[in-house]
């Protein structure tokens, strides 16, 4: 080993360079964490704060008072939670009823006007949400759908269909048509084949699309606001009202409740969204 001065110098420089690099990386990670988790931390503190005034960096009084208030069976929150889940489940059912057959049909390249149908389901997303929902609300007035569960479920389904159709098409496109042929070959009719061979193959993608629709419905605000309120209150609507009234504790707890299914399902979705299926999205 040669200990020439130049060698030592470069070595020291490299070490210093490495250290600088290391601390810079730490700083970036910290900043990123702050940006990502800072608001959530703030939200978490709010959920257990009973008293928190402006000059204080932390709440002056801690406690679970608002949790008891929220989980009181007669509170707005439990009612809204029930509404939200009820609407979300029915929206998922409506979306699946449409997207499973439609996705299968659209996955066949021979279908006429295939691209047109695919784009049709994308169309509601092309316009600003607000205008679309105000117009829907106006039309729903004529049919007496405003303020009804049916109205809200329809609005959520239109929104959810985009996800469920596009994901279903991708899921059905990855199934091997030879597997269908093999089934027909052995005496199974088209329906038997669909339910025993095609659907199980596409199931992971369909489950992923159902989860997406569920989460979208759970978080949906604009449509529910214009079509459902004031008769129907969901968690996002409650969150909005609570925030407007300055009731940050209730708003934060509601937000936390909304966060739980999102995180949970996102973990599940990563399992079902296989790369080969993602590559077929929009094809």
């Amino acid at each position: 080993m040669i200990h020439s001065p130049i060698h030592l110098l470069t070595k020291r420089f490299n070490k210093r360079y490495f250290q600088a690099n290391f601390w810079l990386q730490c700083l970036f990670i910290l900043l990123l964490a702050l940006v990502l988790f800072g608001p959530i931390l703030n939200l978490l503190i709010w959920t257990i704060a009973e008293r928190w005034y402006f000059p204080h960096a932390l709440p002056t009084q801690w406690g679970l008072k608002y949790w008891h208030q929220v989980f009181n069976p007669y509170s707005d929150v439990s009612g809204s939670l029930f509404n939200s889940v009820f609407i979300a489940v029915l929206t998922v059912i409506v979306c699946l009823l449409v997207s499973v057959p439609a996705g299968y049909a659209l996955s066949k390249q021979t279908l006429p006007l295939r691209v047109f149908w695919m784009l049709l389901f994308l169309l509601p997303q092309a316009f600003p949400n607000l205008t679309v929902y105000i117009n829907i609300a106006r039309i729903f007035y004529d049919f007496g759908l405003n303020g009804t569960f049916l109205g809200v479920i329809i609005v959520h389904s239109v929104h959810g269909l985009m996800f469920s159709i596009w994901i279903s098409v991708a899921a059905f496109s990855t199934t091997d048509p030879m597997l269908e042929r093999a089934s027909r070959n052995l005496g199974a009719g088209p329906f038997y084949t669909f339910f025993h061979i095609v659907l199980p193959q596409a199931a992971p993608g369909i489950i992923a699309s159902a989860i997406f629709v569920f989460l979208e419905s759970l978080d949906e605000f604009t449509g529910t606001f214009f079509v459902g309120s004031p008769n129907i209150s969901t968690l996002p609507l409650l969150l909005y009202t609570a925030s407007m009234e300055g009731n940050y504790q209730i708003a934060s707890i509601t937000a936390l409740i909304l966060l739980v299914p999102s995180v949970l399902f996102m973990v599940i979705i990563t399992k079902f969204m296989r790369p080969d299926m993602l590559s077929k999205l929009g094809k």
Binding site: R181, A182, N185, L186, G187, A188, G189, P200
Partner: peptide, 20 residues
């Protein structure tokens, strides 16, 4: 006749076995 009413079965080049 449709495929399911022919009683002719095929061994596919890709085997086409059902993975589930």
């Amino acid at each position: 006749r449709p495929a399911e009413k022919r009683n002719i079965t095929m061994v596919f080049q890709s085997y086409a076995l059902w993975p589930h």
